Amino acid sequence: MNKSGNNSGAGAARFAPPFMIFIRHGQTDWNAEGRMQGQRDIPLNDTGRDQARRNGAALRDYLKEQDISLKDLSYFVSPLSRAVETMDLIFGELDLPTDLYQRDERLREITFGAWEGYTIPEIAARSPEQAAARKADKWGFVPPEGESYRMLSSRIDAWLATITHPAVVVSHGGVMRVLQGRLLPMPPQDIPTLDIPQDRFLVWKDGEIEWV
């Protein structure tokens, strides 16, 4: 378990409940190939399914250790199939019925628009000036027909402001970067580069972040 910092002065943290768990969906083939996935509906691969089961078992053990009841939590998931299947596999480990979780459109991944399906080297070869602009400002850059991290943060802030109950959330790497950046004080330009593993989950508790 790794803890990171305290949230004093964090921007959107004032909207967050005292306890939340964020889980990134398991690996897909496009993750493994380094393709910009965005809102394309790419399914989990076998590695991703194993990661989801691992996170479900670890979550079950963590909640038991913390004496937190499953019935005291709300459950939210992105509607993209890789997130829904991840939640289904986690629920299998928790022995919960899948009608307990809510799909929320605001938890969809950041969209890369016309760039989805391409790797960064492929984009650099096709659009070198735009690739350089993205590298210089990942927070504010808007891909063709896509969405910037700044735009995503507005969507996630709106969602976060509605969460008033301890929750478990399954979503995406970009979403979880923004969530972590909103909960902890950090420069916006650092948010798009945060590492978001698929074989651990993030716990927000008492103003601190911990990876389990």
Results as ranks from 00 to 15, higher is better:
51 Q>L: 06
51 Q>I: 05
104 D>L: 10
10 A>W: 06
97 P>Q: 12
92 G>E: 14
56 G>N: 06
32 A>F: 15
37 Q>A: 13
32 A>H: 15
106 R>F: 01
42 I>K: 03
14 R>E: 14
177 R>G: 01
110 I>M: 10
104 D>I: 12
85 E>H: 11
115 W>T: 06
16 A>N: 00
175 V>W: 00
114 A>T: 07
154 S>C: 12
17 P>R: 04
140 G>P: 02
58 A>R: 13
54 R>F: 12
84 V>Y: 00
8 S>Y: 15
43 P>L: 02
180 Q>S: 15
76 F>C: 02
71 K>S: 14
184 L>P: 07
132 A>L: 09
68 I>L: 14
147 E>N: 05
37 Q>L: 13
143 P>Y: 04
48 G>V: 01
126 R>Q: 11
125 A>L: 12
85 E>P: 01
98 T>Y: 14
203 V>A: 08
51 Q>E: 15
188 P>R: 01
136 A>R: 12
81 S>R: 09
152 L>A: 08
92 G>P: 07
209 I>E: 08
191 I>P: 06
83 A>R: 05
59 L>T: 02
185 P>A: 11
163 I>S: 01
178 V>Q: 00
207 G>M: 06
158 A>I: 08
194 L>A: 08
193 T>C: 13
81 S>I: 10
189 Q>W: 08
93 E>R: 10
153 S>M: 03
156 I>D: 04
146 G>I: 07
189 Q>R: 13
14 R>G: 12
136 A>N: 09
38 G>E: 08
107 L>T: 01
189 Q>P: 02
50 D>G: 14
207 G>Y: 03
34 G>I: 02
171 S>G: 11
27 Q>P: 01
190 D>Q: 13
4 S>C: 11
45 N>R: 03
29 D>Y: 05
32 A>V: 15
51 Q>Y: 05
73 L>H: 09
92 G>V: 09
129 E>G: 02
158 A>T: 13
145 E>V: 10
50 D>H: 14
8 S>L: 14
118 Y>E: 05
74 S>K: 11
165 H>T: 12
123 I>F: 02
114 A>G: 09
68 I>T: 13
133 A>F: 08
10 A>D: 01
62 Y>P: 03
207 G>K: 07
202 L>K: 07
56 G>P: 03
211 W>A: 05
175 V>Y: 02
105 E>M: 12
22 F>V: 02
69 S>R: 13
211 W>E: 01
5 G>Y: 08
63 L>W: 06
48 G>H: 08
36 M>S: 09
212 V>W: 07
164 T>H: 15
